[in-house]
Nucleic acid binder design. Structure first.
Length: 266
DNA sequence: CCGGACGCCTGTCGGC
DNA sequence: TGCCGACAGGCGTCCG
């Protein structure tokens, strides 16, 4: 999303902000419209799943939650029911946020956004240099929770959502319920490699489109076709043919192959 | 500190 | 056809 948006936004001057629904995950701060007015967009960055729109006098923090999407559209297209806000870009264009479930967030800060309470305590980027087998090994010592929950904990590593957690564990041949602390160095190295591989491939494919998710240009992501376990409940494992199982870990659906992903900690 | 559960919303789908 | 419950890509917060 950041990659697609950056060339469309950087260097533009904000011509206005139209908010039709302020009740998102947190209420959109009052007066934000006035504050962003006429500011130039200096940079579009990302930390974890937050998009950071760097302005001259501060930064907009945008999170899409579960059902949010962004589109760059020509001004004049009437907003739909769940099109909660438009960032007017001038030259007849706008950036429109749609989010049926309203779990999205739009916040702003004048300070370094990385110091914001929502970003401050986040773990390393999964594709960055700080995330390696050694790091995960250290981070998992003494932790008794399921490894799937560990890798979905943003304080350990960011970016691993429910789909990619199942995919990475399958790729690494690790059972999602294995207790985090039971992983040895080799398993941690395998898991880190798998997370990086899965996220890297998904990135190349433009993300995973379930239902109607679309990118800023209106195209879907194509990674859904590449999913190897997620959503394949009762279908044959692509590696060994055993039936994929579906379970729940921490209130989230989890998919795994009972033959390829064997628990070694029970 | 850790782990587990809840809640925020709306839409969709399957079962009856 | 209609109704009802379960579930959905996230994650901050609260509780024990």
């Amino acid at each position: 999303m950041r990659r697609g948006l950056a060339p469309l936004l950087e260097g533009r001057r904000i011509a206005g902000l139209v908010i039709r629904e302020r009740r998102l995950r947190w209420p959109i701060p009052p007066g934000l419209e006035d504050w962003v007015q006429r500011q130039r967009i200096a940079a579009v960055d990302r930390r974890a799943k937050y998009l950071l729109i760097g302005l001259e006098c501060g930064t907009l923090l945008l999170h899409l939650g579960m059902s949010g999407s962004l589109r760059v559209l020509s001004a004049g297209l009437p907003p739909g029911k769940h099109d909660h806000l438009d960032l007017l870009l001038g030259e007849g264009q706008l950036l429109r946020l749609r989010d049926p479930r309203r779990f999205a967030a739009l916040l702003w800060t004048r300070e370094d956004p990385l110091g914001h309470p929502l970003l401050r305590d986040l773990g390393p980027e999964p594709l960055g240099a700080g995330f390696d087998g050694d790091y995960l090994y250290q981070a998992s010592r003494g932790r008794r929770l399921a490894v799937k929950q560990l890798i979905m904990d943003g304080r350990v590593v960011v970016g691993v959502g429910n789909i990619y957690a199942s995919e990475a564990l399958f790729s690494a041949r690790i059972h999602p319920l294995a207790s985090a602390g039971s992983l040895d160095r080799q398993a941690c190295a395998r898991l880190v490699a798998a997370i990086r591989r899965v996220l890297g491939e998904a990135l190349e494919a433009g993300g995973t489109s379930l239902r109607d998710f679309v990118r800023e240009d209106g195209r879907p992501g194509y990674f859904a076709q590449a999913l190897r376990v997620y959503g394949r409940d009762a279908q044959p494992c692509l590696s060994c043919g055993a039936a994929i199982e579906r379970g729940r870990i921490g209130q989230r659906s989890t998919f795994f192959c009972p033959r390829c992903q064997v628990r070694e900690d029970v």
